[in-house]
Computed example of a mutant assay.
Amino acid sequence: MSSTGQRLPVPSDTPVEVVDIDLAEPGRFSPPGSHERIRPQSRVFALVRLRGRPLGMVGGKGAAPAELWQTLADAARRELEVPLARSSPRTPSAGPVSGGGAGNAPDISVVIATHNRCELLRRCLDSLLRMEYPGSAFEVIVVDNAPADDAAEQLVREAYSPRVRYVREPVAGLARARNRGLTAARGGIVAFTDDDTLVDSRWLSALAEAFSGNQAIGCVTGLIAPAELQTEAQAVLERHNGFGKGYDTRTWSLDDPPEDPLFPFTAGQF
């Protein structure tokens, strides 16, 4: 299962600040991977939600935050074909999920492969520990892949232990690192992410919801939106080779494959 469709409408010029807005929370801006309130610059590219659910991304500019928020909301209503929501308390949109762990939340192991990028790893771990998912129902495993020093190990043990577990894989390679994390995982679901990623606060809830909705599902993927668009190179990547291909939920099966000859091997597509 994957979110797919059209590519992101990336702005033609940079830099542009990437923000997060929810149509049910008028006037509020947040940075990617956080629900912290911020005051954005005049030009932004916004991930638009409705009560937590991602709807799409739109761009806009405005002299004041209130004007900018209204510009983005109007663009969302026009370009994403969604009604402008009235202000109301934000409520979780995920349905019930089945399994063990805290309440009905299934146990999930999150595996992060890293290689000599401690500052990025710190940001990733901070976003993981802010997720709206029961803390007792998920574990985080950092796989240090052929490190040049013990910096990542020190970071995990001094700043995140025992909430985050550290393992080392001496043989270089992402596949080796992820397989090492897989052998260390204890959860019934294993979720992989990268050390340069800021995860959405509902990432694990959405994964668990997808698995609980169909017992035949064996793998779930999702949208990867840009966290920043400060350079033209970043914009070109998103414009031509990014993973932001839409927001419609689709299901594929090896028994009934799509016509695309690259199925299921195209990164970010399936």
Rank of each mutant, 00 (worst) to 15 (best):
R202C: 04
T197D: 15
L174E: 14
A191D: 08
L174C: 09
N214Q: 10
I217N: 09
C219G: 00
D195S: 14
D196P: 09
N214L: 06
V171M: 07
A206H: 08
V190S: 05
D196K: 07
G187S: 06
L198D: 12
A172V: 09
V171T: 14
Q215N: 05
L207T: 10
D196I: 08
A175Y: 09
W203A: 12
S212W: 05
A216G: 02
D195L: 06
D196S: 12
V190F: 07
G181H: 06
G188F: 03
F211Q: 11
R202V: 00
A216I: 00
D200M: 05
E209F: 04
T197I: 15
L198P: 13
A208Y: 08
E209H: 10
R186G: 11
T193A: 03
V199G: 04
P170A: 09
A208E: 05
A208G: 09
L204D: 07
A208F: 08
A191K: 02
A177L: 07
A172G: 00
F192V: 02
A208T: 10
N179E: 15
D194T: 06
C219N: 07
L207N: 08
L198W: 14
G181K: 04
F211P: 10
I217M: 12
R186A: 09
L204C: 06
G187P: 03
L174I: 14
G173I: 06
G213E: 12
D195A: 13
R176W: 08
S201D: 08
L204F: 07
L204S: 07
Q215Y: 00
A177Y: 09
I189P: 01
D195V: 05
R180Q: 11
A206M: 10
L174R: 13
R202N: 09
G213D: 08
G213K: 06
N179V: 08
A177C: 11
T197G: 00
A216P: 00
G213Y: 00
A191H: 15
A208H: 02
G187I: 02
L174K: 10
A191Y: 15
R186I: 01
D195Y: 05
P170V: 07
A185L: 01
R202H: 10
D195R: 05
G188W: 04
C219V: 14
S205W: 09
R178V: 10
W203R: 03
G181F: 04
G187K: 01
W203V: 01
E209W: 12
A172R: 11
R180N: 00
C219S: 08
R180M: 06
P170H: 08
A210R: 15
G188L: 02
R186S: 10
T183C: 01
T193S: 11
D196T: 08
L207H: 13
T193P: 04
D196R: 07
A191L: 13
T197Q: 07
D200G: 09
T197Y: 04
G218T: 14
A185R: 03
R202D: 14
G218V: 13
L174M: 13
F192K: 01
G187F: 02
C219I: 13
T193W: 04
R186F: 01
D196W: 09
N214Y: 05
G188T: 12
A177N: 09
N179L: 15
R178S: 04
N179K: 13
R176Y: 13
D194F: 04
G187W: 01
R186C: 01
G173R: 05
N214H: 11
L182S: 11
A184V: 03
L207G: 01
I189A: 01
